[in-house]
Amino acid sequence: MPALNVQRISLWISLGFGAVMLVAFVAFPGFFPPMSPRMSADQVAAFYRDHQSAIRFSMITFNFCSVMLMPLYMVVVYQMKRMATPTQVFAYSYLSAVVSGATLFALADLFWLIAAFRPERDPNLTMLLNDLAWITFVTPVGMLIGQNLCLALGIFFDSRPRPIFPRWVAVVSVVTALAMAPSAAAVAVRTGPLAWNGVVSFWLRTGAYAVFLAVLFFAARSAINQEERDEASDALEPMEAAGAAV
């Protein structure tokens, strides 16, 4: 059953690189605490000067690892295509939203690395790159919301007696989408919980998505297990039928 092996390989790739990304997250000095949008240009420039190595370590690691989550997402696409939904349309929409979402993160990562490349740059330019990085990382949540809603709808419409993903995964998916939505306000707010360093826009958004990814991993794993059990019993059935006929 080579298809199933590929799914397990995909899960482990994403788990492994996901774990490394946690290290990259903790290593980024700009996340503990998240950099304030009210820092002056000189303060931002000093941040890149003082923490150049840590920024590079973290963001190069993110650069290498973040798209390694794609195999996990593609296991989800494949499992969505197995759902007993009226059609497979949500799997295609999910795929599209996942690709654009990952591209946005890759772009934000580049802005951070470009800012760190020449910390001696005019502080106003460093601040511009820093703004682009934070705005691109925190605020465009639409593709994440879209992928979670497509997944949730697929799960709700899955009419298998034993759904591919349990219904509570759909609930977690919708709740995660709702938790991330307010981050878009960080494009206009520079203080309080909705600012890009705020409790809602940064911590709730990032935390909710990290928890959701963990849920997605375990849901995908049990879907693969179930698929293997189903295939094993499908393989047995003709034999049993033949045995009954005798």
């Binding site: 949500f90 295609y92 795929l95 939203a97 639409g142 919301i145 879209g146 497509c150 878009a184």
Partner: peptide, 24 residues
Amino acid sequence: IQIGFALLIVVIAGSAVLSGLVAY
């Protein structure tokens, strides 16, 4: 501009949903 594009970055996946429909 801030209201408009804040709205856009929340609803942008509408385009992804539609390309899924066309692909289907």
